[in-house]
């Protein structure tokens, strides 16, 4: 129990640091930037404390907002993702997901892929809608969401593959 807490805290700090120092400076074609920091919310233990996840993702978003001068958009997007996570689990893994312990950081199966994809789409869509807040940019928002989703997805999956913790 304690080790999961430590692992999560470590993941929180590490992902934020990598996001701020490296990925925030990545701009492909001027406006596509990946946000792999949301891996923290994706990889949070399935049966972990839900209010703990909500508070942690609130803090995660808040720190991101502080570093990117964006008001509260990352906070809102993270919260929405954290809240809808159980529903996405149900959608991707079937109703009884809580009993069969789902391990996300493992070989990529269609279920896992659909879970990560849905999470990233929900997060990015909230993020970019709140960022523009004006409907004259609606096409722009859709394009940004789409491209950034693909990009974040690729990086998330790469990271999961790179740091597979339990290789026996």
């Amino acid at each position: 129990m304690n080790s999961t807490l430590l692992v999560n805290i470590f993941r929180f700090v590490l992902l934020l640091a990598v996001q701020i120092i490296i990925f925030n400076n990545m701009n492909f074609l001027g406006y596509i930037s990946p946000f792999p920091y949301l891996l923290f919310i994706i990889l949070y233990p399935v049966n972990g404390n839900k209010s703990g996840l909500l508070i942690a993702s609130f803090l995660l978003g808040l720190i991101m907002d502080m570093f990117s001068n964006s008001g509260g958009i990352h906070t809102t997007a993270c919260l929405v993702l954290a809240y809808f996570r159980p529903f996405i689990f149900k959608f991707s893994f079937g109703l009884s997901y809580e009993y069969q312990t789902v391990k996300l950081n493992d070989v990529l199966t269609p279920e896992r892929f659909s879970f990560i994809l849905l999470s990233v789409v929900i997060h990015h869509f909230t993020l970019f809608i709140l960022e523009a807040f004006q409907f004259s940019f609606i096409l722009d928002i859709l394009l940004r969401t789409l491209l950034s989703t693909v990009f974040t997805l690729l990086i998330c999956i790469t990271i999961i593959y790179l740091i597979k913790p339990n290789k026996r």
């Binding site: 839900k50 909500l54 609130f58 907002d65 964006s70 008001g71 509260g72 906070t75 809102t76 919260l79």
Partner: peptide, 20 residues
């Protein structure tokens, strides 16, 4: 959980709207 979510969502939306 739901109440906590709504509370935090309220805070973050306030921050967003204020920044706009």
């Amino acid at each position: 959980n739901r109440i906590l979510f709504l509370l935090l969502l309220g805070i973050s939306l306030t921050l967003t709207i204020q920044s706009h």
